[in-house]
Nucleic acid binder design. Sequence first.
RNA 1: GUGGGCGUAGCUCAGUUGGUUAGAGCACCGGGUUGUGGCCCCGGAGGCCGCGGGUUCAAUUCCCGUCGCUCACCCCA
Length: 416
Amino acid sequence: MAGTIKAIRGMKDILPPETGRWQLIEQVAREVFDLYGYQEMRLPLLERTELFARSIGADTDIVAKEMYTFADRHGESLTLRPEATAQVVRAVLENRLERGFWVKKYYTIGPMFRYERPQKGRYRQFHQINCEALGTDAPELDAEVIFLLVDILGRLKIEQVRLLINSLGCPECQVDFKARLSLFLAAKEGWCDDCRRRRDTNPLRVLDCKSQRCQELLRPAPMMRDCLCEACAGHYARVLELLGRAGVAFEEQPRLVRGLDYYTRTAFEVAAVGLGSQDAVAGGGRYNGLARDLGGPDLPGLGFAIGEDRLVEILPPDCGQGRQEKIFLAALGTAAREVALALLQELRQQGLAGEMDFDDRSLKAQMSLADRLGATYTVILGDQELAQGQATLRHMATGEQEQVPLPDLAPRLLKR
RNA sequence: GUGGGCGUAGCUCAGUUGGUUAGAGCACCGGGUUGUGGCCCCGGAGGCCGCGGGUUCAAUUCCCGUCGCUCACCCCA
């Protein structure tokens, strides 16, 4: 329609029946979170810009060119959240939730915003299911978080995914590694334009360049694995061991790096087929220094985000179709409508879904409506039925009909 | 930010080597059943052929621009 207002670029309406798939995903996720001891947080969409600049890293693509940032009416710089982790940590610190010796486990579900060029699986408003666990550096927690993620995907019958894992080490390992990597990169020629740029800005990113030429050149490059300090190496080995014992299939991906600066040690990603180039359905890792970077105490933690939009895409097609039993009341005339409305309310109070038409349509039209709404039974109430204190009950699939006394109708329908 | 592809009915798409009333399928509305849905048959409604400019006697068609969608790069979930 020309001239009508349309949704803005990169943002889309999520409509039925697709909303059923979203509900299913969230329902399963909530069940699993509950099983693992997680509680929900509902957080603001807006935060101070500084929160993201300090946590994600001022030089990252997200902060440097993808955030929806603006000044509010008092001139304060605000940003629509591009991710949730920084915000969860902020909320934990602000509300003093980090106190106590146990592990704090939170999840949050909602929209995130990044000003990127939209494409398949990538929107400017997208939705994440976020898991964060804080309070210990124990590798068992890394394993448990990954179990949780695998559990959600498994219950949703998501097939054909790969769990990629790596360790990014601690800041000390990273300094060592970056130095060695930079020397290596500088000593070689033939890098693509992007990588020549990244050589200076973010050498780690060269590692997962998709250019075949660059990957060739990288073959003899130093590996993060070889730069891990003893503690980090031990931590990583233990995580892999625990995953293996639990029978969780994973692939070590020594080149896996993350685009957010706060990650340390364990980093992982779930890649799916059938999503085009934006194939990361979930990603996460450890962020032991994040709380401190945000002015808080030393609070190790890790988490992940599931890209809900992408998950919906790869969910088996028959999922989330919510086939609710329902009845339709076809009433003819004002008096019948009144009786029908009362009956309908009674059925609904008892938990049986039902609908009726209010616009005095023909029986034919009402039958057609009943069919479209997917009614299993239609109750026909007209003058004839009313006069006899009965209603006609029609089973839609078979077409069988019978006369039922009005008082017996509700019990009859509810009993089946 | 860069590059490719595509914009015709609500949806999926034909079509016009530039020419008079622009088509199909699905969906929608009505009729075939004055109180009975689906299937079938018949009929109907629904289009500034994305927008602006140019070429031309004539543009939905060719050219330029623009906007939008889309895929890829980049980046990430």
